[in-house]
Design a protein around this nucleic acid. Structure first.
Lengths: 205, 205
DNA sequence: TAGATTTATTGACATATGTCAATAAGTTTT
DNA sequence: AAAACTTATTGACATATGTCAATAAATCTA
């Protein structure tokens, strides 16, 4: 197994490979293959990725910027996750048994993404066995993240959910609009606003 | 790679291996190793698994029965998931940054479990490379499940959450006590009770 | 089977959060 | 810099869900 030369790390197009490499060594052949199968994208704030027309499932590595996912419930958006740099994001096909629950991915800061199709990922798993180690470890982390989201959203009061977010994702506060944070926390913007002004005066006990 | 002989499937102690085998072939050596590292447990309804004293993280394959996970928030239980046969369950270390959020696993039907330590799992991944394929595929599924839980719990009304559960986990209704379902759905037992009696008269539009 | 315990149902009332609206503050566009 | 637009703040009021309490029904245990 050859190692990815150090000098290549950080060079445009290699961020994703560097991310993998930090988990487990990536051979030069695998690196070349991954690079060949991936596409660099620049996406403006507010844009949606993965248009409804696309049949193919795609995954995105966030080099720079921020992406949120939301579903619509009776026309209202519910943000289900928000992710920044060095995360892999994608929509989960078939989450919804019903049409209502379709997922949208929206870039909420000008972003640089690396796109790769689900099919290419499967090809990588088949060709390069060690990719399964990397994939498995990444999924362990993503599973934990999803558990955390499920936990957060079950906290029984709006204030607790906000406090939990401040504890676990402090970087989001101030970085992205409050309306998305409110939606992610399962409350209205007005409620979040009241909690925040209140908590200026009542510190955590 | 040798295949697990068919006649061994279904025999006591081989349920877990059969589950893996259905995903990807398991060699006889790997099967023997897994079997050696795992323990068969019979657990009575109501019992907790993984006592607080255990330092080691363990995972459990549910051969028969049902297990729920809950955390405590100011003394109140919040059920975070409920799983039945052929699922692997375990607590996630370090979910909580705070002590409050410690997880409990409770068997809610007389159950048969196969226990295996996290350390043994890691050993399996190292010794048997193909285990990473199986692990990766299992985690893909578990990630989806966790996403579904996060989605469910963000639905903005108690009735919608209940309807979603009826859609996605119909087997739970009638099988386990309503109080656990209510907790899982983020509502009080009384609220669930009212929703259920109401929905007898108002069918889904 | 009877008694004890747990779980489910229903009612009256309390409260956190949603809704709607008006305004302010902040951003982007021209 | 002004205009246009988006996002945040605050108030008055509505409502879904929680709380507490009193039974009823179901399940366990001796």
């Amino acid at each position: 197994m050859e190692y990815l030369p150090n000098q290549l790390q950080g060079i445009t197009g290699f961020e994703l490979i560097a991310c993998f490499h930090a988990i487990h060594p990536v051979s030069a052949e695998a690196a070349a293959f991954i690079r060949q199968k991936s596409t660099y994208l620049t996406v403006k704030k507010g844009r949606f990725i993965r248009s409804a027309l696309d049949k193919e499932e795609k995954l995105y590595f966030i080099v720079k910027g921020c992406v949120r996912c939301f579903i619509k419930d009776e026309g209202r958006e519910i943000t289900t996750w928000i992710n920044g740099e060095n995360n892999i994001v994608g929509s989960i096909r078939n989450l919804g048994l019903d049409k209502e629950a379709e997922e949208y991915l929206q870039v909420i800061e000008d972003s640089i993404l690396i796109e790769i199709t689900r099919r290419s990922i499967d090809e990588i798993y088949e060709r390069f066995h060690e990719a399964n180690i990397i994939g498995r470890k990444i999924l362990e982390r993503y599973y934990r993240d999803a558990e955390e989201r499920a936990f957060l959203s079950r906290l029984p009061s709006a204030e607790k959910r906000y406090r939990r977010l401040v504890l676990t994702r402090p970087e989001l506060i101030g970085r992205i609009p409050m309306k998305y944070i409110a939606s992610y926390l399962g409350m209205k913007l007005e409620t979040l606003c009241r909690i925040r002004t209140k908590s200026l005066h009542t510190p955590i006990k």
